[in-house]
Amino acid sequence: MTETALILIDVQRGFDEPVWGPRNNPGAEANMKALLDAWQERRLPVVLVHHDSTGPKSPLRPGQPGNDFKPELDGARPDLVFGKKVNSAFIGDVDLDAWLRKRGITSFVLAGIQTNFCCETTARMGGNLGYDVTFALDATFTFDLPGVDGDVVTADELYRVTAANLANQFATVKSTKEILAGLS
């Protein structure tokens, strides 16, 4: 049986800035921490990915406090840490696909920020590359977005649509509680 990696995407302080607007799922960070603790306790592979924005005003720019990981990741002992400049963790400073395959890892649990951008994109690519992807929906969050018609698409709506998109083709969508129960 191969090990399942935990991939935490963009769990960065910059997402606490008001520039992003209203968010959903205030319990997401606690769930990310619970997953991290469970993986580390079992000595399973942990990957931390951070977004290194090239935008001059972005709080996620390298060298800015917002580029640092959130306190929930304090004490993390990751097997791999790397940056990326686009949505997918499979297109970053490290070849994540090669790293996973070299270790015989064929499945991963995905959590982090934002549900409908970097997390969803990484899950989709992982599914397309043949990985068994589990998406820890309640260990993600996102923000309201303006719709093309001018109406606001709420974070909760985006969250639900991401779950539906992924569950019907790219990943198994589960809660943190379900994932942790499967580890026992």
Rank of each mutant, 00 (worst) to 15 (best):
T2W: 09
T2N: 15
I7Q: 06
I7C: 02
I7T: 01
Q12L: 09
R13D: 11
D16R: 13
P18E: 02
V19M: 15
W20T: 10
P22I: 06
P22A: 13
N24L: 06
N25F: 06
A28P: 14
N31Q: 12
L35W: 09
L36K: 06
A38H: 05
W39V: 10
Q40S: 11
Q40N: 09
Q40T: 12
R42A: 15
R42W: 05
R43P: 04
R43T: 07
P45M: 08
D52H: 13
D52S: 15
P56D: 15
P56M: 12
L60D: 02
L60E: 02
L60G: 08
G63Y: 10
G63V: 09
Q64P: 00
P65H: 06
P65S: 03
P65Q: 06
G66Q: 12
P71I: 01
P71H: 05
E72S: 15
R77K: 15
V81S: 14
V81C: 10
F82K: 10
F82Q: 05
N87T: 09
F90M: 10
F90Y: 14
G92N: 10
G92M: 04
G92H: 09
L96V: 07
D97Y: 05
D97K: 03
A98M: 07
W99K: 08
R101L: 12
R101N: 04
F108K: 00
V109L: 05
L110W: 00
L110S: 02
A111E: 07
A111T: 06
G112Q: 13
T115V: 03
T115A: 04
F117W: 13
F117S: 05
C118G: 06
E120S: 02
E120F: 02
T122S: 10
R124Y: 00
G126L: 01
G127S: 05
G127L: 00
N128I: 05
L129H: 02
G130W: 09
Y131Q: 01
D132E: 13
V133Q: 01
V133T: 05
T134V: 15
F135L: 13
A136V: 06
D138C: 04
T140L: 08
T140W: 02
F141A: 02
T142V: 10
F143G: 07
P146G: 10
P146L: 07
D149F: 07
G150Q: 06
D151K: 14
V153M: 03
V153E: 00
A155F: 12
A155L: 09
D156P: 02
L158H: 13
L158Y: 08
Y159R: 11
Y159K: 10
R160G: 09
T162W: 00
A163C: 01
N165Q: 05
L166E: 02
Q169Y: 13
L180K: 02
G182C: 12
